[in-house]
Amino acid sequence: MGINTAPEIPADFPGKVIPAGNGANVVITSLDQIINWGRSNSLWSLYFGTSCCAIEMMQTGAARHDYSRFGFEVARPSPRQADLIIIAGTIVNKMAPVLRRLYDQMAEPKYVIAMGACAISGGPFYYNTYSVVKGADHVIPVDVYVPGCPPRPEALLEGMLMLQAKIRTESMKNKVFPIDGFDEGL
């Protein structure tokens, strides 16, 4: 979303033009705050549990830890309705294209949490395996990494709150899409 900061003023323009610096920025940053407040407090995650981390993720959603307190609310079975994908488990070579397709099907803005050792680096399957992807960030861009094997629900909650904090720093003026240039390794 580009903002023209130096509009052309016709020479015979009778009035006074206030440059779209301060005034416009006030509007934009206030809008940013409202939008970020909305986005960060209603992150709906996609069901994506490929192994044991999914059990901890379910526990994080269940009554004791209850991530809907922080606006994570419900998990969605469709990527079209999801803002967030929590990669909870091992990604194997056969699953990688599926993960990428799910990510591509999600609507912007979209966020990714890599939960647990497998999603971060392949974890216990890093060495001597023919089938495991060594980190989900080989497939899609990741915003927050939550270490652990598996991480406790508190750790996942911490990661989710960090993602919220990250979203609150966004501005539509210099918003970049993490997938841009990802495949080229930029």
Partner: peptide, 23 residues
């Protein structure tokens, strides 16, 4: 595995230089 997979990965002498990090 996929139909066009080459080799049998659980054999001890299986080699895959792209995907496998040997330790």
């Amino acid at each position: 595995l996929t139909e066009d997979w080459d080799g049998f990965p659980l054999r001890k002498d299986y080699v895959d230089e792209i995907n496998m990090v040997i330790k």
